[in-house]
Amino acid sequence: MAAQETPTAYVGGTGDMAASRMRYQSEMSIGVDRFLEPRNTECPWCNSAALKVLLRSPDVVQHKPGRFTLEECGGCGHVFQNPRLTPEGLEFYYRDCYDGYQEALRERMFKLQAATYRGRIAFLDRHASPKAWLDVGAGHGHFCRAARAHWPNAVFDGLDFGDGVDKGVRRGWIDRSHRGPFPELADDLTGRYDVVSMHHYLEHTLDPFAELDAAARVLPPGGHLLIEVPDPEWPLSRVLGRRWNPWCQPQHLHMFPIGNLKEALRNRGLDPVAEERGMAHQTGADLLMATVQFWNALMPDPDAPWLPSRGTGYRMSRKAALVAKAPSLALAGFLDVLILPAARSANRGNAYRVLARKAPYRAEG
């Protein structure tokens, strides 16, 4: 999943690590409550006041300090972070996650997504042959690399906040990078692309409606918008609670049932032409990642610059824990594999895809 809200680049090295640690300690010394906006009393999707707390969670991604709440709307089923992080808070909690200190870890995770990339490619291939594609939330360009192998004559550009898209250009995975908020860049990108994609991007954004508006402006009549997001209607999302990886606090701000998204698309002249639920299910995102989260919370990374320094004893214990956690990870991964056929046969999963087509011009009269 790509970083969306101004992640800050981190360059390795002893001096930089010391400076990063000092910066984090300075920020955390005055508390992190200032990173949260006032609580919203209405659903940002339908304006209903029928809200209920779904779960409360710490930072399950990096274990930075803070507590976060997801609320669910009784009117439309929209799930959203409430109170929501401020832009400064998003910078703090994204920093060193996709770029910087944990960049190498994220690179390894992206490389494990080959099956998901193939699924997206096959989904679009049944409906369109792209000539110029804009991947919004492109990260380091791993999806564009896979798609380019299938459509070698198409142009693949990437948009994101971090410098990963620039690295994607240098690697030859992305033709051109765009950095900044999509709604602010949309007018300059209008008419350049016949396909726009948002893969696990919308749930990160402050205003999903503004992002959909931007896609509607950029696409020409007949162009396609491909969206993939976590599915909050997946039953295991409730069973696993805050350990369900796609809740991903504090990074995921909005989670929407598929019916909500399709209605929002139609309201913008983007007609849903296809959807996938079971086929979009991601193996490993449920039980395996819940187990990984458990072990990471139990013994966090001792070198993370936002956490207290740890001594030799802790490091030795953490290495010993690798032996203890291996069987639990293997069992969780095996059970996740068993879930996949059931998800596909029921046409439900932990994620879904929607492909929408912008309505063509209609001749007047």
Rank of each mutant, 00 (worst) to 15 (best):
M1T: 14
A3M: 12
E5W: 07
T6P: 00
T6L: 12
Y10F: 14
G12C: 06
G13H: 06
T14H: 10
T14S: 13
G15L: 06
G15Q: 05
M17F: 08
A18L: 13
S20L: 07
R21T: 11
R23N: 06
S29T: 10
G31A: 12
D33C: 04
L36G: 04
E42K: 15
E42N: 15
L51Q: 09
L54S: 05
V61Y: 05
C73W: 00
G75K: 10
G77F: 00
F80V: 03
T86W: 00
P87T: 10
E88A: 15
E88S: 12
E88M: 10
G89R: 05
G89M: 09
L90F: 05
E91V: 14
F92A: 11
Y94I: 04
G100F: 03
G100M: 07
Q102H: 14
E103F: 05
L105T: 15
R106W: 09
R106V: 13
E107W: 07
R108Q: 14
K111E: 15
I121F: 03
A122Y: 06
F123K: 00
L124P: 02
D125L: 02
P130G: 11
A132F: 07
H140R: 15
H142V: 11
P152M: 07
D160F: 01
D160S: 09
V165W: 00
R171C: 04
G172L: 10
S177E: 08
R179C: 02
F182W: 02
P183W: 04
L189W: 01
V196Y: 00
H200R: 15
A210H: 03
L212V: 04
L212Y: 02
L212T: 00
L212F: 03
A214D: 00
A215D: 04
P221I: 07
H224N: 01
W234R: 00
W234C: 09
V239E: 08
L240S: 00
W244L: 06
W247T: 10
Q249G: 07
H252S: 04
L253M: 13
G259H: 08
N260H: 10
L261K: 02
L261N: 03
K262S: 14
E263R: 07
N267T: 12
R268Y: 11
R268E: 09
G269A: 13
L270R: 00
D271H: 12
M279H: 09
A280K: 00
H281P: 01
H281N: 03
H281D: 05
A290Q: 04
Q293N: 11
N296H: 07
A297T: 11
L298F: 11
P300M: 06
D303V: 06
W306T: 00
L307I: 12
L307Q: 08
S309A: 14
T312A: 12
Y314C: 01
R318M: 13
R318V: 11
L322S: 15
V323H: 02
V323D: 02
A324D: 01
A326Q: 13
L329P: 02
A330H: 11
D336S: 06
L338D: 03
I339Q: 15
P341Q: 02
P341F: 02
A342I: 10
R344T: 08
A346E: 13
G349Q: 01
G349C: 02
N350G: 09
A351F: 05
A351L: 04
Y352T: 01
V354F: 04
A359C: 09
A359K: 08
Y361M: 12
